[in-house]
């Protein structure tokens, strides 16, 4: 599928929009189609999913009322404007290395991945922001990470971990996430799946694409939790970046969590 590459994000893509009463606006983002209508103290949002990714993304275009769509209604106090924000998914994402990847003891690998972005509909009243709802740009299937007792529910993603240099996504609905894995153990790290803690990441927007802060993972051994650190600034791409979404869950300087899944773990299930 040929996807048209946009060099720059359209002006005001993530900015505030002044809606007239009874006005319709339309977004097309990934597989998601959204219609938003302002009815004074009420916002209405209808959504649909396309079979394939859109080839022509659209942001807040004036639109007609969609035929036969089911509207979700959101009653609010009087709000001044509307904002569609990009946010990262609400659960961790499981990705696999593109090729069988073995990181030897006392070595590190610099990788990156693309994370699918969601849209967050926000009604704005002065300084107050009311989150109306969130919409995935594509429906991700769920997957289980870890053992049956202590594991957790995550999203499965078909994208792979790729080696650097970092390539911005051709599509707006993916954020580029840099990742550095350091194997501090003496054994080789040979993993099947990696758990990206998207809920702790900050989302930045550059001119061309969305980015997250870098994740640094220290691997101590198969039976031990890995130490995860999240960089406090955006990756250095030469672009000027600004924060568009703070982490969903705040974190301390580093986290100790299970991050890798090995063949042994999978066959235990």
């Amino acid at each position: 599928m040929a996807v048209k590459k946009h060099k720059e994000l359209p002006e005001g893509t993530w900015g505030r929009i002044n809606f007239q009463r009874d006005e319709f606006r339309y977004w097309e983002f990934g597989k998601l189609r959204l219609w938003v209508k302002n009815e004074g103290n009420e916002w209405r949002i209808a959504r649909e999913y396309l079979e394939e990714m859109t080839t022509a993304p659209r942001f807040a275009e004036p639109a007609e009322e969609p035929a036969g769509s089911a509207w979700n209604r959101y009653i609010t106090e009087k709000t001044d404007s509307f904002q569609m924000k990009p946010v990262l998914p609400d659960r961790p994402i499981i990705v696999r290395p593109e090729f069988p990847l073995k990181i030897l003891g006392d070595s590190s690998a610099a990788l990156f991945l693309h994370i699918p972005v969601w849209l967050q509909a926000v009604a704005v009243s002065g300084k107050n922001e009311l989150v109306l709802d969130e919409f995935p740009s594509e429906m991700l299937s769920s997957t289980w990470f870890g053992d049956m007792k202590t594991g957790e529910l995550c999203y499965a993603f078909k994208e792979y971990l790729k080696p650097l240099p970092m390539v911005p996504s051709e599509q707006y609905w993916f954020a580029v996430c840099p990742l550095v894995i350091r194997n501090t153990s003496q054994t080789a790290l040979d993993f099947q799946r990696f758990c990206v803690r998207a809920e702790h990441l900050t989302l930045y927007t550059g001119k061309e694409s969305l980015y997250t802060n870098e994740i640094q993972v220290r691997f101590f051994g198969e039976d031990q939790s890995s130490q995860m650190t999240f960089a406090s600034r955006p990756p250095e791409t030469g672009e000027t970046m600004k924060v568009v979404a703070e982490p969903r869950e705040p974190y301390s300087s580093s986290l100790l969590k299970k991050s890798f899944s090995f063949l042994k773990t999978l066959t235990e299930i």
Binding site: I94, M139, S141, S142, T143, W144, A156, R193, L266
Partner: peptide
């Protein structure tokens, strides 16, 4: 199973 988002990929 693959097409149904409610069916887990893993296990």
């Amino acid at each position: 199973a693959r097409q149904n988002p409610l069916c887990l990929d893993e296990p």
